[in-house]
Design a protein around this nucleic acid. Structure first.
Lengths: 181, 181
DNA sequence: GTCTATACGTGGATAGAC
DNA sequence: GTCTATCCACGTATAGAC
């Protein structure tokens, strides 16, 4: 099995169960690999798997966010495209965010650099759209942070309240959050 | 030791480490009680401890939010008071939220009712302030959800980015979020 | 590269003395 | 009401065969 293929399956386990909940049994099940085989691909065990997962996520954020958010179409249309992608990725608000999962717990101590970088990739890409729309750089950064923070918070409410309406509202308001005062 | 005294210490462990990370060793250390003593107070073990922690949190939310948010002072001043309390409670953005912690992981399956209720206590109290300020009920509810969602999201950014500025901005904007269009 | 088997610590939980 | 001692299952990790 290709390493990337394994990583894709590992992501889901860490996303759903968090770092502590991602047991070797679950990671083994999700990949179809025995525990010993996992150690063949990731000699440092669980910690290396999580690190690989975060590397992969950063890569995918760069591909999946930076490219569409820098396309030559109008800024508002880029944001609508992203909102659509985000809606699909989080299964309309029913899926937790891996970065939030890891950032909240102890795992943040170990993976802080990687979590920070991944968040910044996303925030920077969003801020770039606002800048393209004529927003001043510092303001654009703050609005991009607001957008991410609203997405993250709405995912918590979605899980906690069992209601994805706040998530949908946040996505619908996304162009406004970034481009309007 | 009084049960409530124990619960207060247990809260901190679940808040900091999440449900999986809250091991009996840590719960024992935090309370100063041996494992067997914990089972004397909470016969159903860890699950009962977490349930007690959530009951306690709901109680404290009712006391700590409902009362000040229904005081006879101007709505905007009630919100400023709450912002101050929230800032102190989350240690200026450096402390994770227990509800978010539990809502994101597997624990949400077990404690969903309690998590939902606690969130609703908070949201309802906030919505009440907006209603008192003349906002229509459905709009007030949405704005209250927005306020909570922004607080939760900003706490994730604070941990993930290692920067509490977004949290401070969210708190400063809180009266505006609830009372202005 | 993947497996079976295994080692070793820890987590959750209980028995029973005081 | 708290303790020490103990139990069993599971989590992480490794050895070594194929």
């Amino acid at each position: 099995m290709l390493r990337e293929e394994a990583v894709v399956r590992l992501v889901e386990v860490f996303r759903q169960y968090g770092y502590d909940g991602a047991t070797l049994a679950r990671l083994s099940n999700a990949t179809g690999l025995g525990k010993a085989s996992l150690y063949h691909h990731f000699p440092n065990g669980k910690e290396e798997m999580a690190a690989a997962v975060l590397d992969y996520l950063k890569l995918k954020l760069e591909e999946g966010m930076l490219v569409p958010l820098r396309s030559p179409i109008a800024p508002i249309d880029r944001l609508l495209t992203m909102a659509h992608s985000v809606d699909a990725y989080y299964n309309h608000g029913q899926r937790a965010c891996l970065l939030a999962m890891l950032a909240l717990g102890e795992a943040n101590d170990i993976f802080h650099e990687q979590i920070q970088q991944a968040l910044n990739v996303w925030i920077d890409a969003l801020a770039g759209v606002a800048i393209d729309a004529g927003v001043e750089a510092a303001t654009a950064r703050q609005r991009a942070e607001d957008a991410i923070l609203q997405i993250q918070g709405s995912l918590i409410l979605a899980k906690g309240l069992g209601d994805t309406a706040p998530f949908q509202r946040v996505l619908a308001a996304l162009p406004d959050t970034l481009l309007t005062a």
